[in-house]
Write a protein that binds this DNA or RNA. Structure first.
Lengths: 74, 74
DNA sequence: ACAATATGTAAGGTGTGTTTTACATATTGT
DNA sequence: ACAATATGTAAAACACACCTTACATATTGT
């Protein structure tokens, strides 16, 4: 999952540790999500977006099938 | 995690199985998410919102700390 | 009455998100 | 030179999302 966390942190001059503390998760968790090593839980995604005062869709970018595509019939 | 999946399905007259097929997951996965038994992965949350042509925030409702609240200093 | 569909639920297994601990490197300030 | 901070990374353990299989109940159509 692609995301803009690194840039959003930089804009606010937050370290990974700073963000981790705000979120109540480990620095490694922030690092892994930021680098796309794995996806955050939905709850953590909400929390991250909230810290940046953005919506989830403004922070995270899945490899997006079009909204109308139907996996079953595609 | 609270959500509006049941209503959104009803508006479209989709069964849990129908939605599951569209998402490429099991009916039980849809049932569990819909009933709040557990949260979907972020990817699945994106896919669900996409099927309803809505944003994640219009489908899922976390127990929301205010956007400006800081867990570390609250 | 019977078959088919829709939903809820449970058990057991696999994959992965998150944790703690730990080490390495680069950068900055003194 | 030294200390402190920021970042990347790894291993081992735990929690849980999601799977398959299976059964129960209710509703609908014939």
């Amino acid at each position: 999952m692609d995301n803009r966390i690194k840039v959003l942190r930089a804009e606010r001059d937050w370290s990974q540790q700073t963000l981790a503390d705000k979120l109540g998760v480990s620095r490694q968790a922030v690092n892994a999500v930021e680098r796309g090593k794995h996806d955050p839980s939905l709850q953590l995604a909400f929390d991250i977006a909230s810290q940046f005062n953005l919506r989830i869709e403004e922070v995270f970018f899945p490899i997006t099938k079009s909204a109308t595509e139907d996996k079953a019939s595609a």
